[in-house]
Simulated scan of single mutants.
Amino acid sequence: MNPALVLSILALLSGLVLRYWINRRKFYRRSSLGAEGFSSYEKSVIITFLERTGKWIAYILILFGLLFYWSYSRQKKEKEKEVQIEMQNLK
């Protein structure tokens, strides 16, 4: 298996799982009125900062996953073109 494809899959999956996990934590922290419940102001600030940072990391992982997949598809197309040129030269 191509390393670019493996990195693409790993980066995409980890980015998507990270976003899902953060959004799920945020959802279950809400009350019936829609307000998030924290036990203290400090926890509110720290958790909000960490979740925001985690979301940016997830976006970066998803972007890298897409770029790795694009790289893999370009390599595959170039190999196919090389094979076609070799086949034409053999004829």
Rank of each mutant, 00 (worst) to 15 (best):
G15R: 01
R19W: 04
L67S: 05
Q84C: 11
F38D: 00
N2D: 13
W70P: 00
F27C: 07
I47M: 08
Q84I: 04
A58T: 06
L33I: 11
L50C: 04
A35Y: 11
L16M: 10
L61R: 00
L5R: 04
L12G: 03
S32H: 09
V17M: 04
E80F: 05
L90D: 06
K26S: 13
S73K: 12
L63I: 13
S40H: 01
I46T: 03
K26M: 12
I85V: 08
L33R: 06
E82K: 08
Y41W: 01
W21Q: 04
F38Y: 14
I46C: 02
S32R: 13
K91Y: 14
P3C: 00
E86H: 10
I22G: 02
K77D: 09
Q88G: 00
R29V: 02
E80L: 12
I9D: 10
S71P: 10
L18W: 04
W70H: 01
L61W: 02
S14K: 08
E51Y: 11
K76Y: 02
Y59C: 07
F64M: 13
Q84S: 11
S8V: 11
E51C: 05
L50Y: 00
S44F: 07
N2A: 08
A58H: 00
M87R: 09
K77R: 12
T53M: 12
I22M: 09
L13H: 03
V83I: 15
Q75K: 10
R24W: 12
S32Q: 14
V83F: 10
S31C: 14
F38M: 01
G54S: 07
I57K: 05
L5D: 02
I46N: 00
R29G: 13
S14G: 06
K81L: 05
I9K: 07
L61S: 03
L67K: 00
Y69T: 09
E80M: 09
Y28W: 08
S44I: 01
L10I: 15
W70I: 12
S31F: 13
M87H: 04
E86M: 13
Y41I: 06
Y72I: 00
V83W: 02
K81I: 07
M87K: 10
I9N: 10
V6Y: 05
Y72A: 12
W70G: 06
Y20C: 10
R25W: 09
K91D: 10
Q75H: 03
V6M: 08
Q75T: 04
L12K: 02
S32Y: 12
Y20F: 15
I62V: 15
L50P: 00
I60E: 05
Y72N: 07
L50D: 00
T48N: 09
M1C: 04
A4Y: 07
L13T: 13
F68C: 06
I57T: 13
I22C: 08
L5K: 06
S32L: 15
M1A: 11
I62T: 11
Q84F: 08
F64S: 10
K81Q: 09
N2P: 13
K77C: 07
W56I: 14
W70Y: 11
S14C: 11
L66A: 12
E42L: 09
E80G: 01
E36L: 12
W70K: 05
I22H: 02
R29Q: 09
A11F: 15
R19Q: 02
N2C: 03
I47W: 03
K91L: 15
Y20Q: 07
F64H: 02
L12M: 12
N23S: 07
